[in-house]
Amino acid sequence: MSKPCFLSSTIGRKVIAAISGLALVGFIVVHLAGNLTLLLPDGGAAFNAYAHKLASLGPLLWVARAGLLIFFLAHVLLAIGVRLDEKRARPDGYALKASKGGPSKQTLSSRSMLVTGLVILLFIPFHVWMFTLNKGTPHAMVEVHGTLVKDVYLAVVTAFKDPVKAWSYVAVMLLLGFHLRHGFWSAFQSLGVLRPKWTPALYTVAFVFAALMAVGFIALPVYMLYFGPNPETLRVAVAGH
């Protein structure tokens, strides 16, 4: 028989989508953990130290970035492929379409994976522009534990004092929550690791996980907008300590 091509089979493609998705989930968890240091009442010392640590990884940082980019591209391309398959496999749709409920896990979240994913895809360049490349946000250096580091904290505080930016972030992070609600459990099903007993449990865990991620990422802009320090007086206040 002809050599089966694992990667181009429907199953192989799901496996890659799942692995890349879980890798991106890992990134998100680390990213949120780092971001939560923004909430510490230390004038941004912990957050700036974290940002500095990342930036000083040197070549390792670029390896991580390349890895992320590869996982991201693989994930996006496969997702678009699934959608194209869908159009090709059912050119004539139904006049009426309804979910039967019961064991069905067809939800707004599962149906909108491509849309939520694409919004996140469009969001990332803005996010990188604003905070990684530090464009359109104030540049400053600050001393943390005796070393002079880039004041990313000031950039974040300034950006989120703008209600448009803050609420846009909230909206995108809400969509991220929707994406994770279906994506997280679905990845395990795609990898074939789910036993019948585990499916309901993991489905619930996925909901809790998605909610935690969304709440965590949403809390930051909302906190900065309403309770965050005033960027104008921020460094003066820190200096006065």
């Binding site: 429907t10 799901k14 398959d85 039967k100 409920g101 069905s104 067809q106 599962s110 789910l194 019948p196």
Partner: peptide, 22 residues
Amino acid sequence: GFGNCSNHAECEAACPKGISIS
């Protein structure tokens, strides 16, 4: 030419024999 699976589990709900997505 069937489509790929997105783990919606709608098939399990539609299945008259209740075949599980496991």
